[in-house]
Simulated assay, not measured.
Amino acid sequence: MSTTGLMDPSLDDRHGRAYWAVADCWNVVRRGLTHYRRQPVLIAWQLGFPVISVLLYGYVFGGAMKSPDGGSVRDFLMPGMFAMTMAFGFMNTAMAVVTDATKGVIDRFRSMPMAPSAVVTGRGVNDLIVACAELTILAATAFAMGWRADAGPMKTLAAFALLLLLRFCLIWVGILLGLLVPTPEAAGGLYAVAFPLTMISSVFVPPSTMPDWLGTIAAWNPISSTAAAARELFGNPVASDGSWIQEHSLLMAVVWPIVVTAVFAPLAVRRFQRLSR
């Protein structure tokens, strides 16, 4: 990663701290994206696993599922799969952060004359770019399987924006967890948290089909709000039992990510600052 010019304080005065914060952030992003070119297995895992999941749930388990309106189950399932993929992405973030930490990469960043925020923001931007690629491939796969978005281009774009907003807020969760766990092996144990987080939701089935107490938890899961909002914007079947949280899924698909970001972004930055001392 090039930091040419950062050693000269006069350049910092000439361009301003904001300029170098953006430039350093981009250098971190470029480093992360370069890893995909040099380690193609990362692409196969991060982009291939979601596609395989869509195919499995769409074809293998799809016959055992029912759409709330009695129509195509894929129209109900696919927006939920998109939301699940965005939610699972925080595991990739945590793994990348803890790997950099254990290999001394973060220590090297701290020793360089670069903006302190660049390591955290660069990780976030890198993962958001990867999330865009994931959504593009997933949407193309779902389209080939027969899924359609029937509500028009503007609402379709809005649905994808909400999915990326969910991914953005969970990036901060992944960064914090990556800074907290000691090793990549320990980070692998976070799947014990990720699976219940995604499964106890409306991704696959309406919360009304679950026991009352579990259905309430699933309905208030932020992933459920994003999945329901995406279904509505795509023009796909929406399952609602008339509860407040399900009737206001569009609102909560925005509120939940704001709340999660407001809580976890400062915690992630504070944790990184403590490590920098």
Rank of each mutant, 00 (worst) to 15 (best):
T4N: 12
T4I: 12
S10P: 01
R17C: 05
R17S: 15
A18G: 07
W20T: 01
V28G: 06
V29D: 01
V29A: 07
V41Y: 14
P50R: 07
Y57H: 12
V60S: 10
F61L: 15
G62L: 03
G62P: 06
M65S: 05
P68R: 03
D69R: 09
G71Q: 08
V73T: 11
D75E: 11
M78R: 00
K103G: 11
V105S: 11
V105P: 02
R110D: 13
S111G: 13
M114I: 14
S117G: 12
A118F: 04
T121P: 00
G124Q: 09
L128F: 10
I129N: 03
E134S: 10
L135R: 00
I137A: 10
F143E: 14
F143Q: 12
G146L: 06
P153I: 04
M154V: 14
T156L: 02
A161F: 03
L163S: 03
L166A: 08
F168Q: 04
W172R: 04
L180D: 00
L180F: 10
P184G: 07
G188D: 06
Y191K: 14
S201I: 07
F204P: 04
T209W: 07
M210S: 06
D212N: 09
I217V: 15
A219G: 06
A228F: 04
R231S: 07
D241Q: 03
D241R: 08
S243H: 11
E247C: 08
L251G: 08
W256V: 03
V260T: 13
T261L: 12
P266A: 06
A268Y: 02
R274C: 05
